[in-house]
Every structure is written in C-alpha cells, then in structure tokens.
C-alpha cells in the first residue's frame, strides 16, 4: 500500500478506477460523466481509459438512469450511477423506492441488484436552489437500501469500493463541501474483510465527557468543535457513523454509558432526521447512564434556504460547541 495526499474527488476517482480495474461488470453511468468527467470531475479520465461501453453519458432523465441501471443489473452488471446533485434524485425516487429497494425481497433472494447511486449532497458551497439538499433520511427509512457517506478522501476511496462490492443497492452520499479537502489516501486493494468493516461506525477521538455523533460533512465540523471544546476543558468522543443504513450503534451506546451525554449533528432537517432515530435508540439502550437529554444539532424546519442564509442554517463549529456546552450544563 502506498499513501498519497488527495482530495475527496481524487479519492473517489481512484476508488472508482480500482473497482473498474478489479471487476469487468462494473459500469459508470450518468449525466456528463464521460467526456466532461462529471460536473465535479469525480469520473475524470475514466471514460478515456475504460471506454464508452463501461463509462457512458446518459440522457438527462434521472428515473431513466435508475430504471436502466436496474435492467443492466438484471443482465449481470454492477452499475454505479451518478446523480448530478442531491435535489435531482427525486425524479428517480420512484425507481429507487418501489423497484430498486424491493427487488431482492420480491425475488426471494434470486435477483440481487448491486447498484451504487452516487449523490453529491449537503450545503455549504453557495449553490442555487436544489443543489444543497440532505435527503439521507428518505433512503435510510426505506428497507432494502444501504446508505453510506464518507467524511474524508481516504474514507471516500475505501467506501466507494466497499459500496461497489456490496451485493445490495447502496445510496452513496458524497459531502460536496468536502470534495476539495485533502487527506492521506492509503491506496491498495480492498479485501472482503476491509470492505465489510466499512459498514461500521468509527471512533475518531475518545473523550470522557460527551459523545458527539456525526457523519459526512459534519464530521470535520465536529472534530474541529472537539478541538475547541478541549480548550474549554470539555473532553469529547467523536464518532463518524459512515454507514447510515445499517446503523452501527453499539459503539455509540458503549461510549454514552461512559460519558452519560450525547449530541447528534447533521445538516438535514431535525424533524424525523437521523438524529431522532439515534436519540431514541440511545434513550432505549442507555437511559440509566444518561446525565442529560440527548441533544440534536441539525437543520431547522425550513426548506434549504437561499445560500446567503446558509451560514445561519448549517450547524457550525460554534453551534456544535454551544450545543455541547448546554448539554454539559444539563
């Protein structure tokens, strides 16, 4: 294995390349992904190197992309589709929810659909409407789908390969505001065991005062908040969920039994978001260890606002610090 500093875009590109190399059944399809290399350049150079039968542009029709990917999977391929932006996945929602998620169940296990749906998601880049959504709860709520999200370049490199190797459909959410963040990427072949481990949460730092749970774009925010909290004398554990479906909650329960306090942070609307599920499960499992109510730091119940509002909308380091301080006082 060699390590190289890469952006998340670079990590994804390298991970896709490794999967295309490894398995001839892997196809990449989507809007503008071939000649252009994707609007974020995640697939840059792959059409040239793997040919237009394996990396190809589709008509501009998201339901069509998902529906034909399902047919390709039925023919034995492993399609990786790109939805250009989070807000454009909804025309494909029917194919994802009524067809993709249910087919393995309906066929009594005879026809798996190993499809990865890559979606750049989340805000923070000053984008126009429909380009900053966090739709993860819809997919986590749907049995039959797996949902995964990386927080840095190395996680993206490993995670995309694990998602492609998975026999189930995977909604792969890419935090677009972290696309250009650099990290050391450990290049090399992902073993089956390595891939399996990607479906667990990971503890980034351990502190005895509070358990901070985050995923995707909020992991960096929470890590930086934990640094600030340390200066205030608050020792935080930070857990990156990575897999949103299935949820790997045992490490969170174990941590909360130590700390007695928990906050969950996400960009998506707080109401019936991932934080609600995690808070409920933490209360069920750790009720007698809790020193304070589980707090959610998340989006308000408004549509994703025009970008000049987003610094008020998105959980910031300051909001996470303030929320943790409040829970510590509870």
């Amino acid at each position: 294995m060699s390590a190289a500093p890469m952006t998340m875009v670079g990590g994804l590109n390298a991970g896709l390349r490794a999967s295309l190399d490894h398995d001839p059944r892997v196809l990449l399809m989507g809007e503008d992904i071939a000649t252009l290399g994707g609007v974020f350049r995640v697939t840059d150079g792959l059409a040239k190197d793997f040919g237009d039968q394996r990396v190809f542009d589709t008509p501009l029709a998201e339901s069509g992309i998902l529906g034909t990917a399902i047919g390709l999977a039925m023919a034995g391929f492993r399609p990786v589709v790109e939805i250009q932006f989070d807000g454009f996945v909804f025309p494909a929602f029917d194919q994802i929810v009524t067809q993709l998620a249910k087919h393995h169940y309906r066929s009594a296990g005879h026809t798996p659909l190993p499809i990865v749906v890559r979606i750049p998601y989340g805000g923070g880049i000053g984008a126009v409407e429909h380009h900053s959504e966090s739709p993860e709860a819809y997919f986590v709520h749907t049995p039959g789908l797996r949902v995964w999200t990386p927080s840095d370049a190395n996680q993206a490199y490993l995670g995309i390969q694990a998602a492609i190797a998975c026999p189930d459909p995977v909604i792969f959410l890419e935090p677009k505001r972290r696309y250009w963040d650099k990290a050391e990427v450990a290049l090399g072949t992902l073993s089956a065991d390595d891939a399996e481990r990607m479906w667990s949460s990971r503890t980034l730092r351990t502190g005895s005062d509070i358990t901070v749970v985050a995923y995707g774009p909020m992991v960096r925010t929470c890590t930086e908040a934990a640094n600030a909290l340390a200066e205030l004398g608050v020792k935080a554990t930070v857990i990156d969920l990575r897999s949103l479906s299935p949820l790997d909650l045992d490490p969170i329960f174990a941590s909360v039994r130590q700390t007695g306090r928990c906050v969950v942070v996400h960009e998506a609307v707080e109401t019936v978001g991932l934080g609600a599920e995690i808070a409920a499960r933490v209360v069920e499992e750790c009720f007698y260890s809790l020193e304070a109510p589980v707090q959610r730091i998340a989006g308000p119940h408004v549509p994703y606002p025009p970008s000049r509002f987003e610094r008020h909308y998105l959980p910031s380091i300051d909001r996470v610090v303030a929320g943790v301080v409040q829970v510590m006082a509870g």
């Binding site: 034909t68 047919g71 039925m74 023919a75």
Partner: peptide, 9 residues
C-alpha cells in the same frame, strides 16, 4: 426502463 437497461446489457 428495466427492459431497456437489460437490452443495453
């Protein structure tokens, strides 16, 4: 759409 995808396969 599944039929078309299958045919593309």
């Amino acid at each position: 759409l599944h039929a078309v995808g299958y045919a593309m396969g």
